[in-house]
Design a binder for these strands. Structure first.
Lengths: 210, 210
DNA sequence: GTCTATAGACGGATAGAC
DNA sequence: GTCTATCCGTCTATAGAC
């Protein structure tokens, strides 16, 4: 249905809406993105080893061989999922320095991160699972990106404390507690769903927390 | 065949240290427990599908076939790990009602659960991973044991609130927040280790929290 | 109870026609 | 870029000697 339609369309309509090279690049782009999204879902449900390339390909509606055409190995695909996830996470992380008021900055960060966890629930599970099992496939990301970021945040927090804007708590501890509580709602979705009927009281919970 | 062996042993050594039936049961017991412990470790590190029976057997210092002699299937072994874990968890959970004072009861529970998470770090990871991936292998435990337990706890908390011993927060929310923060230190050990050099500030963190 | 050898299924990856 | 057929390795589980 894919390539035949494209060439047939050009010949029959006597117009070439998009240059071929552009179109081919577009195909690679969309198929790659689609596979990436399906991979994220399957990895979230079954874990790295629990997920098979056949499952991911099937969900994407493609033969297994196509997956290997776009991503050389299963592990490469998994890494791309993690990287993609980190990009989003990092974007959100920067909202931390939007305000000079601790309550507002932390509150805004928590809310945004919560939003992201709800928005990218599947990805958040992949991330969490990876961390739990030792983060062996993302030591690079962790060391090169998250660690420096955390250190700058700690400086900001310590500055707030020094200026008397915040109670004297350990800055790193504070960050971990924020992570713990925000991440929890995403990661432990299954437990929460199983035990409670409804959800969506998170907003209130974190207003209380802050 | 049992009697032949028994008599032979007695005849050679001229002593019968332990009745044979007792000894055979003992072997089964210790080997089973040893395999269970090794399984918990490997499942924690690699996940259900990432772990292989060969790895578990090797860590236990036994041939793979022996593992299947004690546990019929890999999944049966995994389930036993979860059940074993839940037993410990449930024991700790009961400390919640040891005191009639909210602060003391909750504080004691948090401390005990933290202790358990640190003590059974591996098991805690297995549990967390299982939950993240949909808790498909422990719906029974979750529905039959955890849910009723949680409901009784909610009653206790609401009672405290009614008597003015506790601020009027949603009882279920409170329980989730306790879970979130305590569990986090166990589950996200890798992240914490990677980002911080030291650990063991948990005590202070949770004193602050409470 | 222990252990070697192996059956049988499945998974990742590739060849090669279209 | 797409897809079928297939190789080869690994995994669970078992058979059967000791």
């Amino acid at each position: 249905m894919r390539d035949d339609e494209a060439t047939a369309e050009v010949a029959k309509n006597d117009v070439a809406p998009v240059p071929l090279r552009r179109r081919k690049a577009h195909i690679r782009e969309t198929n790659g993105a689609h596979l990436l999204a399906c991979a994220e879902a399957v990895f979230a449900e079954r874990g790295l080893e629990g997920a098979s390339t056949a499952m991911i390909a099937e969900r994407a509606g493609l033969p297994k061989a196509n997956l290997h055409y776009y991503f050389p190995t299963k592990l490469a695909l998994y890494r791309r999922v993690l990287e993609d996830l980190f990009e989003d996470w990092h974007r959100v992380a920067d909202t931390f320095e939007s305000s000079d008021d601790p309550v507002e900055a932390i509150g805004g960060y928590v809310r945004t991160k919560m939003e992201l966890s709800r928005l990218r629930l599947l990805g958040s599970k992949v991330w969490a699972s990876e961390i739990i099992h030792g983060a062996v496939h993302m030591q690079d990301i962790l060391n090169e990106h998250v660690k420096p970021w955390l250190e700058t945040r700690v400086i900001v927090i310590d500055n707030w404390i020094a200026r008397g804007l915040l109670a004297p708590v350990d800055a790193q501890t504070l960050m971990f507690m924020i992570w713990a509580t925000t991440q929890h709602y995403a990661d432990f979705d299954a437990r929460i769903r199983a035990l409670k009927g409804k959800r969506a009281l998170s907003q209130k919970a974190f207003d209380t927390f802050t």
